[in-house]
Amino acid sequence: MAALEAEIARRPGHNIKRAEQALMTAKAAVLREFELTVPQYAGMVVLSYLPGTSGAQLARICAVTPQTMATVLSNLEAKGLVTRTPSSVHQKVFVTKLTRAGNALIKRADVKAHAVEDRLVAEFSDDERRLLADLLERAIKVLNG
């Protein structure tokens, strides 16, 4: 069993997945206070920078499926945190914006979620952070073909 665990631990995909899960678990823990999931938080952060973004654009930026983003936006709309109105350009596209309550909530939630990321990067020197970012970008590039 130990040999199998050692073999699995050497696989880069396993380590990347473990790191992602650890990050998402830590973010989920701090976002519970705000009754937000990590995908809801991610969508709201994007909307805070890019108001009027469509659901399809949000899905791409947040790296989730369009169906997942549709559910995320429906839940945020039900909570009064976003509004969705039909686009003046395309009937089937909805323009999504944070409400006043959504803006206030994401500002508070982002402080806590950002602290998780700060805790992560504080573990590395400046050179290590740059190297990690470069290595991850190379991995993304090679896997995206």
Rank of each mutant, 00 (worst) to 15 (best):
E77M: 08
L50M: 13
A19E: 09
V46F: 12
N103M: 09
M1G: 06
K112D: 14
K79T: 07
P12F: 06
A113H: 13
P66W: 13
N15H: 03
S54R: 10
P39M: 05
E137M: 11
R11L: 08
Y49S: 09
L136H: 02
I16N: 00
S88K: 08
T65E: 04
T25C: 03
T53V: 05
T53F: 05
A101F: 02
A115G: 11
H114S: 15
K141D: 04
R138P: 00
K79M: 09
A78F: 02
T96F: 06
L81N: 07
Q57C: 07
A63M: 14
A28H: 14
A122T: 14
V72H: 04
A113V: 08
D118L: 15
L31C: 01
L47F: 04
L135H: 06
R129A: 14
A115K: 15
L136M: 14
Q21L: 15
N75L: 06
G145K: 08
N103Y: 00
V46G: 06
V64P: 00
V30K: 04
K27Q: 14
P86G: 05
K79P: 02
L50F: 10
A56D: 10
K141W: 15
T53S: 12
T25A: 12
T53Y: 03
A2Q: 09
P39L: 07
A22M: 12
K112V: 12
R84C: 06
A56W: 05
G55Y: 08
R11V: 10
S88P: 02
E123H: 15
F34E: 00
G55E: 09
Q91P: 11
A22G: 06
N144K: 13
H14A: 12
R100G: 04
S88A: 07
T83Y: 01
T71R: 15
L47T: 01
R130L: 15
V116K: 08
R100Y: 01
A56L: 10
R10L: 10
G52A: 00
A3L: 10
S125G: 13
T68K: 13
Y41K: 06
A139N: 09
E33C: 01
L132N: 07
V72L: 04
K112T: 07
V38F: 01
P39K: 11
L31K: 05
E20V: 15
A9I: 02
A19W: 01
P51T: 07
L135E: 07
L76D: 06
P12D: 02
S88E: 05
Q67P: 00
V111N: 09
S88Q: 10
H90R: 06
E117Q: 15
I8F: 11
G43A: 14
N15P: 00
T68S: 06
K112G: 00
A42I: 00
L58I: 03
